[in-house]
Nucleic acid binder design. Structure first.
Lengths: 145, 145
DNA sequence: CATATTGTCCATAAGATTAGTAGACTTTCG
DNA sequence: CGAAAGTCTACTAATCTTATGGACAATATG
């Protein structure tokens, strides 16, 4: 039941990008790696994956870097985690995005499945409704207090 | 965000034991393995781990087998999963049972941590309040319908 | 156009984890 | 004693995670 380092690094990187002022400011991979203490070459892969998924835009060359492809309020933690770590589901037979049948005789009366469906719902109800902007706002409220 | 096969097998095995009538009836590993379609030698390890954790009792020799060490209503899915798969937490810094600091400058205002704390709470609020008996009851209600 | 800078892409690898398998040993009952 | 059950330890193949390294492509500037 763990978030991988990849997922964690990805979220931290996107949060940093979401924090930029003015919004959309380009930030270099190297700067992100240093500020968030993430191995540079590993972070490259992660950002590339997020770019391919349409969450990031980049520009090459001098003055280049990364910025969010969409407003921070429309990128959810669920999208990030699915992109980097795959489906959010304890077992495949309760996955929204990557359903696969398990081998129990009847899925409809399978106790394990019913319980895991509840767990998945609990997780996705948070992850799919929490945007980068939401996270940022909570951080600022907490820091002010 | 996955339940391992070990965890899944463990829950299925305990559910089968919880289903026994009269309660406490001894069931052989072999029978569980066949009915639940679990590799025998793997299941041995799993049941042994659960026994060491105090969730199961066993008897050796002819007529031996396993039975629940406690009433099905007082064994939760959380206990089983923690025993077999370790702490239930997306990141260590939000773990109840195995807390470890992450390396962010201030845990109190860490956005990732706040979000993951919510996720962990969502998971444990289900897993720690759902007992084998609860699962069984839901199965029976569903099957009746 | 040359060059420095920045991201892109692909290959490789060490270490950990998962999912099993094997076999010798111990206890219990008849 | 001997058969039937669980116990315990060790081993292994495959996969996943977490990286690292290097050649390549695009861009801005002078």
């Amino acid at each position: 039941m763990r978030l991988s380092k990849r997922g964690e690094y990805g979220i931290r990187a996107l949060l940093l990008l979401a924090k930029q002022n003015p919004p959309g400011e380009l930030v270099q991979i190297k700067q992100i790696a240093i500020k968030e203490n993430i191995p540079l070459k590993y972070l490259e892969q992660i950002l590339l994956t997020l770019r391919h998924a349409g969450l990031l835009h980049s520009r090459m060359g001098i003055g280049g870097g990364y910025h969010l492809a969409k407003p921070a309020s429309s990128i959810t933690l669920g999208q990030i985690i699915r992109t980097l770590d795959g489906p959010i589901a304890p077992v495949n037979c309760v996955s929204q995005m990557a359903y696969e049948p398990c081998d129990c005789p009847d899925e409809n009366t399978c106790g394990l499945r019913m319980a895991m469906l509840d767990v998945r719902t609990g997780m996705t109800s948070i992850l799919d409704t929490t945007s980068l902007a939401d996270v940022l706002q909570r951080m600022q409220s907490k820091a002010a207090a």
